[in-house]
Design a protein around this nucleic acid. Structure first.
Lengths: 138, 138
DNA sequence: ATATATTGTTTGATAGTCAAACTATGTGTG
DNA sequence: CACACATAGTTTGACTATCAAACAATATAT
């Protein structure tokens, strides 16, 4: 079989399984999908404006308005006026929001751990290196 | 840095990039997201019942009803009565539906080709082998 | 000053989803 | 056989996710 076909098949299946896993992890928690994604970004990259958050999430600012409204109502995040530009807000996770982020992060870590558990050290190293290379190039 | 952390970071970023890519590919075509996913399954695994399709897609049969309604309206698929069970339908791609599948498949292949283009033969081999292993174990 | 650009919100529309009620059909048991 | 139970798919009602376009407030440039 052509190596590209083989790579493709495994990539597609892997992506599918990752998607299901992510979906089920989110549904275990109390957050809705959009909120969970926003919290992941805010936890990973830190507080940022509506515009930057929208760009990171790949959605319009209108969509982000709704998402952040719900996060605020749920007590996960707050809008804070930006010092330098009075049109802009900085979205910051509350302690509750940060806890949710850490919890999600732990799930990711245990997923990575599970994967690593049935790979050799050499395979882990190669896999990580290739992923890093792909992330840089794509 | 801990190898697990490093693996996790790269996995998360990779998944994020794959998601964006998939999203943009679907939006280039005429199909909506749910329809595109259904066509992928039907093209890959062949005709199947509403129930099996729902299970493959990870949604309820109610959701699949809507999705297949729209595919039928668009001329991408047809419901055919199952021979053995008159409650059941077999969902089959039309020629138009199969063309859409092949088109999507070509996009996936060129994505795999792009990835392969900046990897060594050895890296491709290792990456594919690890993905296969993960897909089997997860 | 005045026009233009930018940040974020609102509005109106559509898609995606689920749970629960429902219809039609199939299966098993006394 | 008849009745209960199970299963395949649809419908309904509700909510979330999303976009594009119109809008308000503020910033920037000429």
């Amino acid at each position: 079989m052509d190596p590209i076909d083989e790579l493709n098949e495994n990539l597609v299946e892997f992506f599918d399984r990752m998607s299901s896993w992510e979906q089920s992890v989110i549904q275990q928690g109390k957050l809705n999908v959009a909120g969970a994604h926003a919290i992941e970004k805010l936890g990973h990259f830190g507080s940022m404006s509506m515009k930057d958050l929208s760009k990171d999430l790949g959605v319009t600012t209108g969509t982000t308005t709704i998402t952040v409204d719900r996060l605020e109502k749920g007590g996960y995040a707050v809008r804070e006026r930006a010092d330098n530009d009075r049109r802009s807000y900085i979205i910051r996770l509350t302690e509750k929001g940060n806890d949710a982020y850490l919890d999600h992060h732990r799930h990711h870590l245990s997923f990575a751990k599970e994967i690593a558990s049935f790979l050799t050290d050499e395979e882990i190293e190669c896999f990580t290196a290739v992923l890093e290379k792909i992330n840089k190039e794509i």
